[in-house]
Simulated scan of single mutants.
Amino acid sequence: MSTAPEPPLPSHPVLRLRLAPRSGMPRPIDGAWWPRSYDLPTELPSLLSGLPRAWGHIASVTVNGATWPTAPGRMLVFNQVVRLRRALAASAPHTVVLLAPGRGRWDLLVVPPDTTDEAAQPLMAAAASDDV
């Protein structure tokens, strides 16, 4: 009697992030992030781990309060405290703002989690394009 091999353990999903090339000029959008849910405490560690080391420690993350449900005021990510802020500005409902003291600010387009792959890919490519 033979037994079927055990299925592999689930791996961590691939981070869906596209960043614009570095340049000396400020940009309105620095790339795009396509989270799998609007659960910030679940999604944030994956995002922060995928950012370039040159960005330094992201100490503050601001999301749109109308889009993202309530999250704690701060959370521990990789043994570092990250402040979570919810803005109510209607001007940027699909962005996340990342701040690293002494390093800079980066604004990422947030592609809604329920967006199809066909619709998300052009949005992410445009946000990471040199033409912004």
Rank of each mutant, 00 (worst) to 15 (best):
T95R: 13
S37M: 05
W55M: 15
T3W: 10
P45K: 09
L19H: 08
P101T: 11
D131R: 08
A20E: 12
V82M: 07
P93C: 05
S129W: 04
A128D: 01
L99G: 00
G31K: 14
V111T: 04
M25G: 10
R18N: 08
V61A: 10
A59W: 01
L109G: 02
W33Q: 05
D117I: 06
V61Q: 03
V63A: 13
L88S: 11
T116D: 09
P8L: 07
D117F: 08
L109A: 06
P41A: 01
D107Y: 03
P26F: 14
T62R: 13
Q121A: 12
G73C: 02
A92Q: 11
D117P: 01
L47K: 12
P28Y: 15
M124L: 13
T95Q: 14
Q121Y: 04
W33Y: 10
L40T: 00
N79V: 00
G102V: 02
W34M: 11
A4Q: 10
P5K: 03
G65E: 07
D30F: 00
A54E: 14
D39S: 07
H12R: 14
M1D: 07
E6D: 12
T3L: 15
A128F: 10
T115Q: 09
A127W: 10
P13W: 03
S46Q: 15
P7S: 09
P52A: 11
P8Y: 07
V77K: 02
A71F: 00
R74D: 13
H12T: 12
V82P: 00
L76N: 12
T116P: 02
A127D: 09
S11M: 10
I29H: 04
D130Q: 04
P52N: 08
L108M: 04
Q80Y: 02
V14K: 12
Y38K: 13
P52F: 13
M75R: 02
D30M: 05
R36W: 10
A92S: 10
H12D: 11
A120K: 00
R53F: 05
T42D: 15
G56H: 10
R16D: 08
R27W: 05
M25T: 14
Q121L: 12
R83Y: 03
R86N: 03
T115V: 04
V82A: 08
L99I: 09
A120R: 01
I29E: 08
D114S: 04
P8V: 07
P113K: 00
R18A: 15
